[in-house]
Nucleic acid binder design. Structure first.
Length: 110
DNA sequence: GATGTGACTGACC
DNA sequence: TGGTCAGCCACAT
């Protein structure tokens, strides 16, 4: 990836700030970075994130708490396993108690 | 360089 | 309640 894509870098920075055991959504990150409506770009950033290495992409799910990106991990179960290892309950590809675990960038980083 | 696709989302019907 | 559409923009073909 090009160092020049500050948006992607910002996405990675925000994702790295997500506390273990918490989750957030693509749209929330996009909105926090002033790219409201560009949730897909956050998704694409996550697609490239594996190359970075230290980006906890498993803590990013869609707006209803579904692990929509699981198929992009090393194995389809990797995302759920990592979340559960952090204490996040996942059932049928969906984060349980999502509303309570949701990490709001603009609220937490204000 | 046009076209299609997507780890998304909100609005509309 | 549930399906579709339209924006979003980087990337592959």
């Amino acid at each position: 990836m090009s160092q020049h894509d500050s948006f992607f870098q910002d996405v990675y920075d925000v994702v790295r700030l997500i506390p273990a055991g918490r989750v957030t959504s693509y749209g929330a990150i996009a909105a926090y970075l002033g790219r409201k409506g560009s949730a897909r770009m956050v998704g694409w950033a996550m697609n490239q994130a594996h190359a970075i290495g230290d980006v906890p992409a498993h803590r990013v799910v869609n707006r209803i708490g579904v692990l929509s990106g699981k198929h992009h991990f090393q194995t389809p179960t990797r995302m759920q396993e990592q979340l559960e290892a952090e204490g996040v309950r996942v059932e049928n590809d969906q984060v349980q108690d999502f509303a309570r675990l949701f990490w709001h960038p603009e609220r937490e980083l204000a």
